[in-house]
Design a protein around this nucleic acid. Structure first.
Length: 566
RNA sequence: UGGGGGAUCGUCCAGCGGCAGGACGACGGGUUCUGGCCCCGUUAACCUAGGUUCGAAUCCUAGUCCCCCAGCCA
């Protein structure tokens, strides 16, 4: 067996290896992905999904999907649906282990009663404002609540009455009795139940109280016999509390491990900011192809494989970092290069008339569908006297390094003929080039010259009479600033939005084979980029294309450099 | 001025007392019917100061800087 270069293990997998070696959990590995159904999943969640489900796969373990639905005022079934769709689309399967924290409400309630009976929890009548004041500050200890030493009987009675809705929202809480002087604010008698007399999307109006995250999460993990509970860095301070509840109750105790969340350059990841972009109309929805949401990336044309590869390559650590979005783009190009069918499409059309080509003649020329994958075969592309080429594939006064079409110059039309530009037609008033007159060499049919002569440039083209007019949407980074979350004084992150993040081109001309392209289908427009048929706005026969990514463009780089040297 | 974390090429991740390595990016070249892909090469880093050691990114000490925490959000 060839010695594969094995990727070094990240610190979490190292911990799991160690736990396996010491038989800490009986050889089991069981993770969970625990989203709150209050928004759409984004690429940052994908990191967590790939981590949790990926580890389960690698270790022959299991990964649960669990909705952390303890706050009915913010949650909705709409999000439950989209989250399940996105996880599935990414290629992961939770089998029959779809859980909701709300499934455990009764058991959680019993655990709370147990805590009360142990004298480890009490009903507190302090108002939210008072609780804040009693909590103290980062540098000063808090004060004990005057309700801290109620009798077990009174606590039991009050808690039961909280449950059935006898008291108004916010009037009382159930708190853990820990240590108001703890340097860790999370340990200063944290609230574990609050009164919220609102219906829950799953339990209806059964409950008037809902448990808090810290209480719910550790016990849900415990109930599900999770071995390794992976979460982001900001929960590091909560780990003592996670452990405290489990220790007090003497139940099965998973291990919480924290890792750094993903930050991606040129975009934002917070639900708050993403929601603002949607609500205030900066983008057209959670699935706008400019959004870093899974739904947006999917609509943009990203593949699950590309996203998974990306999540694998960004690595895993505890330091805060900002991954360059160029890596994401690299991953999608790499994947699409292998699988996307090549087609020809002209984004900025310039008409070309082949003067020596017969008016009524049409030839069907052979084109290769994917040079990276011969099994994808070939197709026919119609060629005729009048064509469209890309406007910037022609320059009247070309610089030295430009080797595309220019007056008197010969280039190849991909899979077709060598043509030579013999005349340039301009608009009388504006001077704009509106048409090129060219001649072709019949001997170069298919794109090779029998006399062995070479041309520097090969251009893509579309037969004017056969072209399908389509709308193409070009996308760029949503933000111009690499870190839009780093807002300068007096500004908002929205001021960094790239005004060219969406450019709509219409009409563009694509080869006729694209007339029946299906929503979600991906193509490489040769020499231009990768495009995906929009799944929302396309109509049968008139596809709308989203640009997933450009091709690497060496020529653009040269131009940029020359411009700078001027 | 409390507590919890973290500092390695421009970016991300390795390295666990023995030549600081990979990926992305950038730059240069080769190849080419996509200025794509692919291939080759170059660039470029251990937060600082001491100490231990034959030898320190790694161990010790003292600093510096960055992130998180004062929701009845998760």
């Amino acid at each position: 067996m060839p010695q594969e270069k094995t990727k070094p293990k990240d610190f979490i997998r190292a911990i799991i290896d160690e736990d396996l070696r010491t038989d800490k959990y009986g050889g089991r590995v069981h993770t969970r992905f625990p989203p709150e159904p209050n928004g759409y999943l984004h690429i940052g969640h994908a990191k967590s999904i790939c981590l949790n489900f990926g580890i389960a796969d690698e270790y022959g373990g299991l990964c649960n999907l669990r909705f952390d639905d303890t706050n009915p005022t913010k949650e909705d079934v709409e999000y439950v649906e989209s989250i399940m769709e996105d996880v599935r689309w990414l290629g992961y399967d939770w089998g029959d282990r779809l859980y909701y924290a709300s499934d455990y409400f009764e058991q959680l309630y019993q655990y709370a009663i147990e805590l009360i009976k142990m004298g480890k929890a009490y009903v507190c009548d302090l108002s939210p404002e008072e609780i804040r004041q009693y909590r103290g500050t980062l540098t000063e200890p808090g004060k004990e609540s005057p309700y801290r030493n109620r009798s077990v009987e009174e606590n039991l009675d009050l808690f039961q009455r909280m449950r059935v809705g006898e008291f108004p929202d916010g009037s009382r809480t159930l708190r853990a009795k820990i240590d108001m002087a703890s340097p860790n604010l999370n340990m200063r008698d944290p609230v574990i139940y609050r009164i919220m007399r609102v219906p829950h999307h799953r339990t209806g109006d059964k409950w008037s109280i809902y448990p808090m995250y810290d209480f719910t999460h550790c016990l849900s993990d415990s109930i599900e016999r999770i071995t390794h509970s992976l979460c982001t860095l900001e929960f590091e301070d909560h780990r003592p509390l996670y452990d405290w509840f489990l220790d007090q109750l003497g139940v099965y105790h998973p291990r919480q491990i924290e890792f750094a969340r993903l930050n991606l350059s040129h975009t934002v990841m917070s639900k708050r900011m993403l929601g603002q972009l949607v609500d205030e109309g900066y983008v057209r929805g959670w699935d706008d192809p400019r959004m870093p949401t899974i739904a947006g990336l999917r609509r943009r044309g990203y593949t699950p494989e590309a996203i998974r590869t990306f999540c694998d390559r960004i690595g895993l650590a505890k330091r805060d970092s900002m991954v360059d979005i160029a890596l994401l783009e690299h991953c999608v190009r790499e994947d699409l290069n292998k699988r996307a069918q090549r087609v020809m499409g002209v984004l900025h059309p310039l008409k070309v008339v082949i003067e020596n080509y017969p008016e009524d003649k049409v030839e069907e020329l052979d084109a290769i569908n994917n040079p990276e994958d011969p099994s994808m075969g070939t197709r026919k592309v119609p060629f005729s006297r009048e064509l469209y080429i890309e406007r910037d594939d022609f320059m009247e006064n070309p610089p030295k390094k430009f080797f595309r079409l220019a007056p008197g110059r010969e280039v190849r039309l991909r899979y077709a003929y060598f043509i030579t530009c013999v005349d340039v037609i301009k608009d009388e008033n504006t001077g704009e080039v509106i048409e090129l007159r060219c001649t072709y060499d019949p001997a170069t049919r298919g794109g090779d010259a029998p006399d062995g002569r070479k041309v520097r440039g090969t251009l893509h083209w579309v037969s004017a009479a056969h072209a399908i007019p389509v709308e193409v949407r070009l996308y760029e980074h949503l933000f111009l600033k690499p870190d839009p979350g780093d807002v300068e004084k007096g500004k908002t992150f929205k001021e960094y939005i790239n005004p060219n993040s969406l450019v709509v081109l219409n009409p563009c001309y694509v080869e006729p084979s694209l007339a029946n392209a299906k929503p979600g289908e991906r193509f490489q427009f040769e020499r231009v980029g990768y495009f995906c048929v929009d799944s929302v706005d396309s109509k049968p026969g008139t596809p709308v294309f989203n640009r997933t990514a450009t091709l690497r463009d060496t020529w653009a780089k040269i131009q940029k450099r020359e411009a700078k040297n001027q």
